[in-house]
């Protein structure tokens, strides 16, 4: 058994197509990849929201905000 479908390279390369593992599961792999991608956005949205909420509370100190503006 070989995950790429070839247990040896005793083949004519003219007859060989894909050589990646788990051929036939491309749609499933892409689905998992899409879940990874969308999950990343979800985590990032939530975290950035929390971060900005904390930053907003800190920014209530008017003097500090003014210092930041002047620092450019």
């Amino acid at each position: 058994m070989s995950s790429i479908g070839y247990e040896s390279w005793a083949v004519d390369l003219a007859d060989v197509g894909p050589i990646y593992p788990f051929q036939g599961y491309e749609v499933l792999m892409v689905a998992i990849g899409v879940i990874f991608w969308l999950g990343w956005h979800r985590i990032q949205f939530v975290r950035e929201n929390e971060h900005l909420e904390r930053a907003k509370k800190r920014a209530l100190d008017h003097e500090k905000v003014q210092q930041s503006v002047e620092r450019y």
Partner: peptide
């Protein structure tokens, strides 16, 4: 070429290989 590799690969189709002289591609 398979002849240049001198292994088990048959036929006359040339290929790129990894360092072990097994088939892969720059595209891949």
């Amino acid at each position: 070429s398979p002849e240049g590799i001198g292994g088990q690969i048959t036929g006359t189709t040339w290929t790129a290989t990894n360092i072990y002289l097994a088939p892969t591609s720059l595209s891949g």
